[in-house]
């Protein structure tokens, strides 16, 4: 017993200060990407899934397609794409993820009726449908003592019939299509759907493969899009709390710091 108490004391209290305190990220953390139009010194024709639109057209960043790799931060004909350390990027609509320079339309609260039902208690059912396992690992991390999802009244449940919302990860593989549809149908209305990760939004790194679809929104209505590969647990938490209108009002907004990218020598080596 004494050993338990001593270990408990040594471990201390570890819950993240978020959402009341600030969220800290290391210098290299790649959060919200931004496009600096016209800033790029040498303009290379580098194809990027993130920056859409051909030369001469109006360019846009699609956060739903971003895999947050260092290589995606490049000079494109549209300008220079870089990352910030801003973890907030979940949106309520697919269009909200697409913008001219990276200012996303952050998720809106559910309507009053839904809020009165789910605002203080939301039960979620997870369906994994053609993922790499990375997004689920972060969903599981949401339950640890640091992020402690349960303190907001959000809980994962075992049965779709007990769930208010569906969290989908993965690129909707052919072999999970039926199970995903059945799970959705088994949930009582009203229900919400949350797409977590690049795979669930656009197919992610597997986009174009015959074995998967192009993400969830093609067939199912989605209420919350959480971009990332995988999204940081705080990105998920931020999105959920926005949806539930549980985020404290923001203090003076500070411009997020840019994330530190690899040295040019390392990036320049490229691929064979």
């Amino acid at each position: 017993m004494f050993e338990f108490l001593r270990t408990r004391l040594q471990q201390g209290k570890r819950t993240s200060p978020f959402p009341h305190g600030s969220a800290e990220f290391p210098a290299r953390f790649r959060g919200l990407p931004v496009l600096d139009v016209g800033h790029c010194a040498e303009q290379q024709e580098i194809p990027s899934a993130v920056v859409t639109g051909a030369r001469g057209e109006r360019r846009a960043i699609d956060l739903g397609a971003c895999l947050f790799s260092p290589e995606e931060a490049v000079c494109t004909p549209a300008g220079e794409l870089s990352y910030t350390r801003d973890h907030r990027m979940a949106t309520s609509s697919r269009e909200g993820l697409v913008s001219a320079s990276g200012e996303v339309a952050l998720a809106q609260a559910l309507n009053a009726r839904m809020l009165s039902m789910f605002g203080r208690s939301l039960r979620l059912r997870s369906v994994v449908a053609g993922s790499c396992g990375g997004c689920e690992a972060e969903l599981v991390a949401l339950g640890n003592v640091v992020f402690d999802l349960a303190r907001f009244g959000v809980q994962f449940v075992a049965s779709p019939r007990h769930a208010d919302g569906l969290v989908v990860t993965g690129a909707v593989s052919r072999n999970m299509r039926v199970a995903l549809g059945k799970t959705y149908d088994a949930m009582p209305a009203p229900r919400i759907v949350i797409a977590v990760g690049a795979c669930a939004i656009t197919g992610g790194p597997f986009r174009g493969s015959e074995a998967v679809g192009d993400g969830l929104s093609v067939e199912w209505p989605v209420d919350l899009y959480v971009p990332g590969c995988p999204p940081h647990p705080l990105t998920m938490l931020d999105g959920l709390l926005r949806l539930l209108n549980r985020l404290p009002p923001e203090r003076q907004p500070v411009a997020p710091a840019p994330s530190e990218l690899p040295g040019p020598e390392a990036l320049a080596q490229g691929y064979p």
Binding site: N175, P205, Y271
Partner: peptide, 24 residues
């Protein structure tokens, strides 16, 4: 259920994208 066609992708996409597939 998680079949995503990884090997076929690795054999057909460009090397930079194949790297991201390998990480996934």
């Amino acid at each position: 259920y998680q079949h995503r066609g990884v090997e076929h992708l690795l054999e057909t996409v460009n090397p930079a994208r194949a790297m991201l597939v390998a990480e996934s």
